[in-house]
Every structure is written in C-alpha cells, then in structure tokens.
C-alpha cells in the first residue's frame, strides 16, 4: 500500500474537500449503490448514518475497518458502506468476523446485522463470541421481526403482536438481548432506538474504541411489516412512540430490559467493563507465559 493510495482513501481528507451540498457521511457510503433497498420509514438507514458519523468521530483509519453482515434487511448494510465489507451467510457473521479479527488483529471488525440473524439462527455464535470477549463490535438492528422474508415472528417479537406467522398474535416469551449478552460476558452493552441518533452515534464511537466484545442493540421500526400489521402507525408515528417511551437509564439492571408491545423501552449504556481481558491480548500473554518466550503472533502470512 503506497502513501499515495493511502491518501486517496483517507476519508477525512476527502471530507475536507467536499462541496457544501454533500453530506459529510457520503465518503463512507458506496453512493453508486444508492438508492438502497430499505422501505420508507425503515430505521436501518438512520443507523448507518449514525455509524458513518461514529467512524468519522472515532478518527480510526477507514481502511482498517471491516464490516461483516449476515442475511436480512440489516444484513444489507455491508453492501452500502465504503469499507472492506463481507455479506456472509445467515447467522454466521460473527464466526466469520472471528476468523477475520484473529487473522489480522489490526482491523477494527464490526458485525452489522439484524435480530433474527444474530439472536436466532446465529444465537449460539453471539453467546460464544461474548464469552470469548474477542474485540469485535456487534451492531444489532432489532426491528422485532423477520422483515426480509415478509414479516414473520422472531425470538424478539413482543407478546401479542400480529405477524405473518402469528396471525392470532405471538405468545412465546422473548429474548432480552442485553441481559443475555451480559450473562455471556460481553464487556460493552448498550441499547438505543432510531429516534436517539445523537446518543447512538456517540455510543457507536465508544464501542469502536472499546477493546473487547461490544454489543449495541438498536430498536428500529419496520413500518411495512411490523407497525402496519399492529396498527402502530407509520415511521413518523414510531419515532414519536420512541421519543415518548424511550427511557434513558444508564447502568440499568439488564434483567429489567424486556421489550413489550407498547410499554417503555429502557435505553442507555448498561455495561462497560475493563476488568475482563480481551481474547487476543489474553492469548498473547498466556502463550508467552507457557512458551517461556514471546508468542510471535503471525497468522497473516499472505
């Protein structure tokens, strides 16, 4: 990689040269792929805007950030960000990211996907990645439903919601993701809604700079399939709902974070721990001790 090329790709430099009419996040997006596929009122694009701002504010080199997605509406994020990006298989973004990070620990590895992908089909990987405390950042857009396939109920769908596969309403208990992640060992856990864009961008930046397994849940509308079927209005109505019912409680007990159909949504940063060693740091130290000489980490050989 020559200095010349680094300059070409340094987004901050590009940003300085932006015309006034251009959105400052544009250098972080693949504008040739716009318009995106997301519906009017969908919250995923809002989260991507926050993410682009977080990347800018973090001052990290965008050439050293990789985004890994699974399958679903939120799984399409990888295709729109102007970073190294991997659209993987359904549920398996986290193990792909695990290999990527272990091969090149210099990379900031972000997993960006949806609730069905990360918490249901990929739930096992979510638990074990949190257990390892490997330094990957998971952004989970939770629209409470399987959206890409037509609005089927999910492990995150609150009780008594109508979905394509629960025409009489859902009755299964739901997953409280922050609680699950805390139990599994994640060292950074937060939740916001797509109404809380300033807080979300700030938390994303903090997660990008946190060393260890980080998890941000973003409650996000699916006006086409969730809000409409449940007579909860359009995207704007949902923003008003989030504004009214989003209650910030930093450090809240994660056991208290269950989601209901129309109740309050507890938001904030719940966990930020520095006392658990990060996986690669721990491995280096451990093997150095066991080998009696420095562990010369060199997985990237190509």
């Amino acid at each position: 990689m020559s200095d010349n090329l680094m300059l070409e790709n340094a987004a901050l430099q590009v940003e300085e040269a932006l015309p006034e009419s251009m959105n400052p996040v544009e250098p972080f997006l693949r504008s040739e792929r716009i318009p995106h596929i997301w519906c009017p009122g969908c919250g995923i694009g809002t989260t991507v805007n926050c993410f682009a701002r977080a990347v800018m504010d973090s001052k990290l080199d965008p050439n050293k950030i990789a985004v890994v997605s699974g399958i679903g509406c939120s799984g399409r994020v990888a295709g729109y960000v102007n970073l190294d990006s991997f659209h993987t298989t359904h549920g398996r973004a986290i193990p792909f990211a695990t290999g990527l990070k272990l091969a090149n620990p210099e990379l900031t590895v972000v997993v960006y996907s949806g609730d069905g992908d990360l918490a249901s089909i990929g739930g096992n990987h979510l638990i074990h990645a949190a257990r390892r405390n490997l330094d990957i950042k998971v952004i989970c857009v939770n629209n409470l439903i399987y959206a890409m396939t037509g609005g089927q109920s999910a492990a995150t769908t609150p009780e008594s919601c109508t979905t394509a596969t629960s025409p009489y309403g859902t009755f299964e208990p739901t997953l409280n993701l922050p609680h699950l992640l805390e139990a599994a060992g994640a060292t950074f856990i937060a939740r916001w809604t797509t109404y809380h864009v300033m807080q979300l961008a700030k938390t994303m930046k903090e997660a990008l700079l946190h060393k260890g397994f980080s998890f941000i849940e973003i409650i996000s509308p699916c006006p086409t399939l969730f809000q409409r079927r449940n007579q909860m209005g359009d995207g704007l109505e949902t923003m008003k709902f989030y504004k009214e019912h989003g209650k910030t409680k930093h450090g809240a007990d994660t056991a208290s974070l269950d989601m209901t159909k129309s109740g309050d949504i507890i938001i904030g940063k719940f966990v930020e721990k520095k006392d658990r060693p990060e996986y690669i740091d721990h491995m280096r130290e451990y093997y150095t001790q066991k080998l009696g000489r420095p562990f010369e980490y060199q997985v990237k050989t190509c």
Binding site: G99, L102, N124
Partner: peptide
Amino acid sequence: GVFIQMEDELAASIALQGAVWGGA
C-alpha cells in the same frame, strides 16, 4: 499460529474463511 475451537461446525467452516480474507 492460532487454533480456535468454535462452537459448532457452521462456525468453524466460516471462521476459516474470515481468516482467509484477513490474510491467513
């Protein structure tokens, strides 16, 4: 080098591909 015992074979068979794109 690194060996990681994953949580299942689905994880193992995609972790190895993430490692390839990271240069291993």
